[in-house]
Computed example of a mutant assay.
Amino acid sequence: MKLVVQIPCLNEEETLPSVLESIPTEIPGIDEIVVLIVDDGCSDRTVEVAREHGVTEFVHHVRNQGLGRSFHDGVVRALELGADIVVNTDGDNQYPQDRITDLVQPIIHRQADIVIADRQVDLVEHFSGLKKVLQKAGSTVVNRAAGTKLPDAASGFRAYSRESLMLLNTITRFSYCMETIIQAGNKNMRIASIPVLTNPKTRESRLFKSMPEHIAKSGAAIVRSFMMYKPYVIFAWLTAIFGVLGVIPFARYGVLWLRDTEGGHLQSLLLGALLLIMAFMSLMLGVISDLIRTNRILIEDTLEHTKKMRFGKSGTELLLDQTSEPDFDWPRHHTRSV
């Protein structure tokens, strides 16, 4: 069984040595470990440092493409290399690489499709009180959209089975973290979580420049991902809200008319008509979006078959037997089973 550890990097020459030196060289159940560096437009000696530490596999971006694109391209290369499991970590040494051994065990023992490290945000010293609250709120929103109960949905320290990567299709270029969870949850994959303690902070985040920007981009990614799979939920609520609000002015007009109140009160009719038109438009948009969702499912089926034809390895797919009983225990917060 082959494990590929992919590390997206943007000018990480100072911290990358610590990351590479702490990646396990032997893991029970793993026959081969390959380190893959995703050079996301580095302008320093990141690539040279990686080569000095024995790394031979690279994905190069001429310009910075963002974390989402780096994850996508790294996964494609990992599958080309024949990876059975892909672990994604960071080049800033935020995560304890020695825990990769624990991270992959649920997949090796066929108990999970995806394993996400829980950073236990309350214990992260460099997180402000506001950031801890926002992290928890973000995880709550993602869990509602995905039907999961993950304590740390924003964690980028993850392990994916080969089969799960055949089913996931990332669109967002800002960050893949939220999107892949929502996709996996709506595709009934099993997601596990294990607690880890992060390393001390080495630098400021380069993913966003300010907290409002992070909230806006993360929120947009969550809404976009949710609408891909359950657009009818949003438009059904809009239809109901506008419909109820549209009936109220008509009811007001009827009451005033029965009382013979002076004045035509046409404004009530106009407002009610406008709201009911908006309700009808929301209903039509819901029907159209649901048809688009159906078309997306068919396209994803085609993409899945295309990936398996391109990357498939007979006898090594980790398609989990979801009817089997677990035969291994690991420290975890949650496992999503179907």
Score class of each variant (00 low, 15 high):
Met309Trp: 08
Ile215Ser: 07
Gly54Met: 11
Asp301Ala: 07
Leu168Thr: 03
Ser289Met: 13
Val104Asn: 06
Pro212Asn: 06
Arg69Asp: 15
Val141Trp: 08
Gly264Phe: 13
Ala137Pro: 02
Ile23Lys: 04
Leu67Met: 14
Lys201Asn: 14
Pro326Gly: 08
Arg296Ala: 09
Glu179Gly: 05
Gly219Asp: 01
Arg77Thr: 11
Cys9Asn: 09
Arg310Lys: 15
Met189His: 02
Lys132Gly: 11
Ser225Arg: 04
Ala145Leu: 13
Phe250Arg: 00
Ile171Asn: 11
Leu165Trp: 00
Leu298Val: 11
Phe226His: 10
Arg332Lys: 15
Met228Asn: 12
Leu168Lys: 00
Lys136Arg: 14
Phe127Ser: 05
Arg51His: 11
Val196Tyr: 05
Leu207Asp: 06
Thr89His: 08
Gly66Arg: 03
Asp31Leu: 09
Leu165Arg: 01
His333Asp: 14
Met189Leu: 14
Ile182Arg: 05
Gln97Trp: 07
Leu319Cys: 09
Glu304His: 11
Leu36Val: 04
Lys209Ser: 15
Cys42Lys: 06
Phe208Gln: 02
Ser210Trp: 10
Thr316Cys: 03
Ser164Tyr: 00
Thr180Ile: 11
Val121Asn: 14
Glu163Pro: 03
Ala236Phe: 04
Ile85His: 01
Leu245His: 02
Glu179Asp: 04
Gln322Gly: 12
Leu67Pro: 00
Ser43His: 13
Leu266Gly: 12
Ile181Val: 15
Glu52Thr: 08
Lys2Tyr: 00
Glu48Gly: 12
Asp118His: 04
Thr323Asn: 12
Lys2Met: 12
Ile85Tyr: 00
Val124Phe: 07
Gly254Tyr: 09
Pro326Ile: 09
Leu197Met: 09
Glu163Lys: 07
Gly66Phe: 09
Gly68Glu: 02
Phe127Ile: 03
Leu319Val: 15
Gly156Asn: 12
Leu168Phe: 03
Glu80Thr: 13
Asp122Leu: 05
Arg158Asn: 07
Leu269Arg: 00
Val4Gln: 01
Val124Thr: 14
Leu81Lys: 10
Arg206Gln: 11
Arg173Phe: 07
Val121Glu: 12
Tyr253Met: 01
Ser205Glu: 14
Ser139Met: 10
Gly54Lys: 12
Thr180His: 15
Val19Phe: 03
Phe235Gln: 01
Thr172Tyr: 07
Ile23Cys: 05
Leu165Ile: 01
Ile191Val: 15
Thr46Arg: 07
Ser193Trp: 00
Arg51Trp: 10
Glu262Gly: 07
Arg296Val: 04
Glu262Val: 11
Glu21Asp: 15
Thr172Ser: 12
Gln111Lys: 12
Thr323Arg: 09
Phe58Trp: 08
Asp40Cys: 04
Arg99Ala: 10
Asn64Glu: 10
Ile248Trp: 05
Val87Met: 02
Ala279Leu: 05
Ser18Phe: 14
Leu168Ser: 01
Ala78Gln: 01
Thr148Gln: 04
Met284Thr: 05
Asp102Pro: 01
Asp113Ala: 13
Leu270Phe: 14
Gly66Asn: 13
